[in-house]
Design a protein around this nucleic acid. Structure first.
Length: 273
DNA sequence: CTGTAATCCTGCGAGC
DNA sequence: TGCTCGCAGGATTACA
């Protein structure tokens, strides 16, 4: 999926186009997403005006002039874009929201791992997000992060993918952060030193910030809210670079499966410890 | 507490 | 050209 930097890019693209606009119509396709959309929700949102577009982790929240709130997840292949109403609607488009300026907000998702649902109110949104998610990378507190890592016997790779430890990291940025911190993906949390936790936290914060600056990584399907691709894929140092030379030492990058996910690392720069 | 595998889906590239 | 296989940015669940 789009991970934090990609979702942030979508939100930044959509926000100025959506805030203040009103939904004048909504068409929902027949195929279900991860969370089924209730038909009774459609008339609720028609006529409502968009107030805020926010991101938490990989989730998008859209608050409206009614109590209900839209909650969106892009899954693996979700695309959430603004388009002119006369532009061709691509296949796998499951939601088309018509806006008061005669443009459309479209949700396209080939693999249908994403979701759009309506929550009763903003309190329910924040309750949901706070249960599902740990802190944003930028808000990490070193002591808490160290405690979370070192209390777990899981691999650091699995810990980084755990959204309750830190929100928004996925497979790409987990691998990139571990490379920057010099940590082997299969290192156990209990075996990570305090100073290494600090390096890892900084690595996460840096790689996420840099990726946001470059509008995220377009590896396959990802596009921003304006339809533009990302550029950070060119700055990736290990992800998708199996067998290529490590940018730091020249050793071929290796790929192993950790916790069912492919993990890319430099066997020279990232020691198991 | 762990890890592993399966599940939800479609599409694409590699290899034969 | 066409087939099968494996793999893909996520998250959840069942089971060992």
């Amino acid at each position: 999926m789009p991970e934090l930097p990609e979702v942030e890019t979508v939100v930044r693209d959509l926000r100025p186009e959506l805030v203040g606009r009103t939904f004048t119509a909504l068409n929902v396709g027949p195929q279900t997403l991860r969370k089924p959309w209730q038909k009774t929700d459609t008339p609720k949102i028609i006529g409502s005006t968009i107030q805020h577009v926010l991101r938490r982790g990989k989730w998008i929240g859209i608050t409206l002039s009614i109590p209900e709130v839209l909650l969106v997840h892009l899954g693996m292949t979700g695309q959430f874009t603004i388009a002119n109403a006369n532009a061709t609607v691509p296949n796998h488009t499951h939601f088309v929201f018509t806006l008061s300026d005669a443009r459309e907000l479209r949700f396209r998702d080939v693999r249908r791992f994403g979701s759009i649902s309506l929550l009763n109110n903003e309190a329910a949104l924040h309750a949901f997000l706070n249960v599902q998610l740990g802190p944003e990378p930028a808000d990490l507190i070193l002591k808490d992060f160290q405690d979370a890592i070192r209390a777990s016997g899981r691999t650091v790779k699995a810990i980084l993918l755990d959204q309750t430890v830190v929100a928004g990291i996925g497979n790409i940025y987990a691998d990139e952060a571990l490379f920057r911190a010099g940590l082997h993906p299969e290192r156990r949390g209990t075996k990570v030193k305090l100073a290494e936790c600090e390096q890892l936290m900084r690595a996460i914060q840096e790689v996420i910030a840099e990726a946001i600056e470059r509008r995220g990584s377009t590896i396959r399907d990802y596009i921003g809210g304006s339809g533009l691709r990302g550029g950070f894929q060119h700055a990736l140092m290990v992800y998708g670079r199996t067998s290529e030379a490590c940018v730091r030492c020249g050793t071929p990058i290796r790929m192993v499966r950790v916790g069912g996910r492919s993990s890319h690392f430099c066997p020279q720069c990232q020691k198991p410890g």
